[in-house]
Design a protein around this nucleic acid. Sequence first.
DNA 1: TATGAATGAGGGTTCATTCAT
DNA 2: AATGAATGAACCCTCATTCAT
Lengths: 215, 215, 215, 215
Amino acid sequence: MTEEELMLQQLFDEDKLTDKQKKIIVAAIETFSEKGYAASSTSEIAKKAGVAEGTIFRHYKTKKDLLVSIVAPLMTKFIAPLVVKDFNKVLNREFETVEEFLRATIENRRDLLIRMLPVVKIMFQEIPFQPELREQFLELVVKNIFNSVEKVIIGYQEKGLLIEMPPESIARLTITNILGFLFSRYLLFPQLDWDDELEIERTIQFIMHGIGKKD
Amino acid sequence: MTEEELMLQQLFDEDKLTDKQKKIIVAAIETFSEKGYAASSTSEIAKKAGVAEGTIFRHYKTKKDLLVSIVAPLMTKFIAPLVVKDFNKVLNREFETVEEFLRATIENRRDLLIRMLPVVKIMFQEIPFQPELREQFLELVVKNIFNSVEKVIIGYQEKGLLIEMPPESIARLTITNILGFLFSRYLLFPQLDWDDELEIERTIQFIMHGIGKKD
Amino acid sequence: MTEEELMLQQLFDEDKLTDKQKKIIVAAIETFSEKGYAASSTSEIAKKAGVAEGTIFRHYKTKKDLLVSIVAPLMTKFIAPLVVKDFNKVLNREFETVEEFLRATIENRRDLLIRMLPVVKIMFQEIPFQPELREQFLELVVKNIFNSVEKVIIGYQEKGLLIEMPPESIARLTITNILGFLFSRYLLFPQLDWDDELEIERTIQFIMHGIGKKD
Amino acid sequence: MTEEELMLQQLFDEDKLTDKQKKIIVAAIETFSEKGYAASSTSEIAKKAGVAEGTIFRHYKTKKDLLVSIVAPLMTKFIAPLVVKDFNKVLNREFETVEEFLRATIENRRDLLIRMLPVVKIMFQEIPFQPELREQFLELVVKNIFNSVEKVIIGYQEKGLLIEMPPESIARLTITNILGFLFSRYLLFPQLDWDDELEIERTIQFIMHGIGKKD
DNA sequence: TATGAATGAGGGTTCATTCAT
DNA sequence: AATGAATGAACCCTCATTCAT
């Protein structure tokens, strides 16, 4: 089983996908991610997947349908659990400090995040142009997850570990920084030299303490 | 003079642009920004600009040439000065604290940033797919600007106002948060209700102090 | 038994058709009639028939084969008997006048004609484009039937009830008027208000006496 | 100037058609008429017209647009004048009898009718499937022309030359017979031996006197 | 026998680009 | 300089037909 298929299993294990369907999805993710949705052609995807072009349209009514079929489950099945799962651990007092929690979460899932990056890239690239995706994202990710996050943040706030800023803002800022790092690192400038461990540590440090010196 | 033409003047005032060329650029920015580069057609741009299709190709050899002609000067003439200019003020001790500096910078240029957002959006949308733009961005923006930033940051660090983190990281994190806010606000979820003043204040607060409670 | 199946029985009662075959034919007639042969897709027919696409091609080698299988028996088993049958009655002096004969024939079979119209429509739509059908039509309908008609017409001519025009011409003109009414009524402008009884009466009157005033 | 171009001139002389546009229309008429609209491909039409396929879509937004652009002017510019023109002569008492009028009309325009037949064929083939055409036909031909016809018919009725049947019915029946002859002759069975003069004469005779013997 | 996934040729249409005017 | 008709490759998608199950 290739890496891609592993990722697919994470994304699509509930659905019964035929062999060809898996190949189409793998090829589509690769192509969309490399060239962007609009610049990808179904014929190229078909060739890369080793199927006839018509086969794509047997499974996905339109090219956009293919896009949505890739990105939508990511939102429902991947991103939500990714965050929520360990938040429960946090709520169960497994982590004494937010710092530890952030470090554990990021480190813990870094490989998966890296493997998922193509799809994440597609997702953020297309959200500005596809109202359908934007609405799904708001409904499934923003609303759904931010609810869970709120509890955790409030928990830490009550423990006196977080400032009193409203939970949504804290969530937005934290997520911004994590995604900001990942996008800079893997999408915008992958060819630069990065010391990943160090940058993650700095990101966490920044999230926790900002850049102002305590005195 | 329309708003767009004002923006154009900021971007292109040195070049002698014909009236039609200006219209083409305005139309291209609007279209690229709305639909993305690949999904925009030159015929649509021509129609929106009120010129013949051929006219576009008289001024810009290819569609990609049009894209680069829009984004490249942004990098050289807009973003660089935007940051550097006030950094010099900072170096001249005009601002006692980083906070004040950040606030002044953001507030000061907010309107312009908002008006520039279409082009900024295009820039970030296309950087992952256009190596030409990516290299330009690295060369002109990252290297060029980060050099200036370093001095400022070092200055504040020497004054004991910033932590000891390496200047590049501080720059990256700061920029990430500013752009992160602007992208969330204007590109990803413009339809949500935002209290801009408040969010900017929180972003600044976050940049300076993180989310961890000092005690 | 539905109306369609009744019609099918009239058309195909000798052949042993499976249940699925009947459903395919009903669906094909409906689709061909609504959209025309070329604009109908086998997949739509399959869906409407509730069978798999492959099933159609198990029974009919090609799409055209399906068309011919529908229209051909119509010519041999329906139209020919339709006319000939009562012509025998006429020959047996059941009708004193041609008028009565025409009226009886049309009225008598009007419901059936209406129910058959989808297939008749297909037949006339496709005859110009399918040489196979055209030849069959000439062989089975024109030659075969016109022979019978000739006898009837000659019979009435001998009785002094018809003018001396050659039987083929009389046949052509009569049929033209009946079909012309039916086509105007049911195919070209079904949405107009028609007083069927009245129009039939006028058609008969016209066939018999033209529009010139006797003096 | 070829025959087709002559016909085109009759149909489209008011519009300024480029050379390529004329070729496209000629090719489209030929192809639609031979194979039917749905079975004709734009690539075939382009090849036959000697233009690039894209050129078709520069002038006609869609394939259906091409169809309508061919058939619509036929209705407005050809069929209407065809009938109305001589009806005025009739009203001016140029013809003593309806028979003479019919003969003059048919003979007079037979060549043109024959040359127009491909377009007439397309028109009647597609009216059942294209609501757009059907409505146009009703609006432009049926309503428009039948108004004129009514006057003529009433004129002859007042002169005692026509029976008292309602003008619309007389019109429908007359037109049915003329088109019925033309369709049988040129569309359905062009390969049969026809004595055109004789058949026209018989059609006229039939229209005037029916098939019933006066006595 | 019946299925429906798979095919790949061909469908209508769009597009960036060219070039004569 | 500016036009816009013309191009033809490429696009997304549909289709009749095949074949392993």
